[in-house]
Design a protein around this nucleic acid. Sequence first.
DNA 1: AGAATTCACTGAACCGGATAAGTTGTGGAG
DNA 2: CTCCACAACTTATCCGGTTCAGTGAATTCT
Lengths: 337, 337
Amino acid sequence: MKRPTIADIARRAGVSKGAVSYALNGQPGVSEATRQRIVAIAQEIGFNPNSAARALSGASARAVGLTLCRPARMLGIEPFFMGLISGFEAELAARSYALTLQVVATPELEVEVYRRWWGERRIDGVIVTDLRENDVRIPVLQQLQLPAVVIGGPGDTGRIAQVWSDDAGAVTETVRYLVALGHRRIARVSGLPDLLHTQTRTKAFSAVCASLGLNEAVTVPSDYTGEEGGRATRRLLIGNDRPTAIIYDNDVMAVAGLAVAQEMGLAIPGDLSIVAWDDSPLCSLVHPPLTALSRDIAEYGAHAARELLAAIDGKQVGNVEAGTAQLTPRGSTAPPR
Amino acid sequence: MKRPTIADIARRAGVSKGAVSYALNGQPGVSEATRQRIVAIAQEIGFNPNSAARALSGASARAVGLTLCRPARMLGIEPFFMGLISGFEAELAARSYALTLQVVATPELEVEVYRRWWGERRIDGVIVTDLRENDVRIPVLQQLQLPAVVIGGPGDTGRIAQVWSDDAGAVTETVRYLVALGHRRIARVSGLPDLLHTQTRTKAFSAVCASLGLNEAVTVPSDYTGEEGGRATRRLLIGNDRPTAIIYDNDVMAVAGLAVAQEMGLAIPGDLSIVAWDDSPLCSLVHPPLTALSRDIAEYGAHAARELLAAIDGKQVGNVEAGTAQLTPRGSTAPPR
DNA sequence: AGAATTCACTGAACCGGATAAGTTGTGGAG
DNA sequence: CTCCACAACTTATCCGGTTCAGTGAATTCT
């Protein structure tokens, strides 16, 4: 099957290619009657502008890129990224932008991908997740002047827009809630320690614990996987002064921690309270259902997509806080015995 | 920053654009010495061919498309798709193809996306998941002559390549295993009933149960979500002749079913054995860990990507069976009391 | 009424590669 | 010594849009 082009439309409408282009793009230069005739013909023959030709003649590629820098087995189990992608998509599809995805192994390779995408003019902008301290990707994006939105701050990203959720506030609220229940020994199993939002949470956790006079507050670094989360939990629970509450940086580790604690004969929430960051069906499936810090991840992603599209349109975008997690108490938290 | 083009390379090498194109694409027409000089310059200035220009002049877009037709909340929790995507990616990235993703609501919209992608010349081929009976997407893909690989058969896809796993064999093996343990009342909670691989499993399940003389074998249709899976489990367990074993079509429903059964006071595996289709960390996290039908989903995806790339290269590809699930016994299956 | 402006459109250049067709220069065969 | 074949290029065209500089006709202004 031959793809219809504007030349085909022009021939059938008895006008020039230029007129068709103006008509279809809502540009001035054609009469309303001609425009409608052209649009009707385009519809009739099922015309779609060739994205390559459009991108080549200076217009945008109408595509944005997303790189995922996590091992495959971690991506699969973590609902976070799929939620984020769904959110992007909803927003991008509405403006008929395509989403190009690439899974990479390291932030350095991620930079390579950005450079290639930029060189190939394949995308108009990128969404950057998992911001790190002194992130190598930021200077490259600035140098390439590639529109971008960073998720996972707040951090130092210069003129690049950021979308972030108030993790510090959420940690603080959670610790206060546990203390109000009567807990004094609260531990935290964190995500990858070199991610900026992990550091934000860790600092806030230390700060609020100090301010409340909890001097045994400890954060054990982990990596978001169930195995590591379970191992960290076991280490925390075999000590003499075991914590009476643990906050996990994601749902997967929380579920694994729950299993470990139950295996060790602890009653949840009687002997140990558990809070999971990022609610997902997972948290409600297990027994008891987990108290979680819920946020609308899809909406978070949609928000980021909107900011990115604005940045691509040349609008100045800044630092936006969105989708702060809300504490959703369920059966896994109670006063300590 | 200005993007380097072949014209820049040509100027620096003192040759014409054409020579650069020949050199970089390994075509004859330039001497080996010149080729190496050109390649060196390209490397030095960090040249990447403009994908739009390349696509426009008849070559391929070097991109493939994937549409996901599931509600967002289901995508998030199901590790299957992310595993599949990781697998594609590994294979595509190796041949520097990009993956374009779109989340859609219905198969009809999926067809629209295919048409648009084709018209825009945005992609060279598509991967089709969730094959249905009389799938509306197949005739469209054939009409557009868009290279494609179908996952989720086997089914009637005409000249379009398929990659599928032997679900019928896996069901049969599982039922035989449960019968060998002493089970006689086996139920199954299935995935979306209009998907072809669900029907394949259902037919095989009925067949093997009949052949083994189990006349109470029932399949309850569900939708892969934890909520529905839990509800289906509850319905199965409140009857008088409740099953002593349940097979679930995915891990999420199995975990939900486990929670429901435990809530109802049943001992797992003493009162009820549970088998999950598609192993994931989820299955090992819960207590007891779930016996599962494991398969390497990423490898399954990689296989599909290889077939698709072959189809794009014009090679005739057919019907490939890959990644049949292996029964991995864990703590959730035992002889019935 | 004549000049100026606006409108609706045409024609051609351009984006950056791929590629067919044409142009050299060189070496070997006859 | 000439002719031919071939390697090693160059030149020009094409892909399908966008966009800018015209162009002729209609309308407006003075």
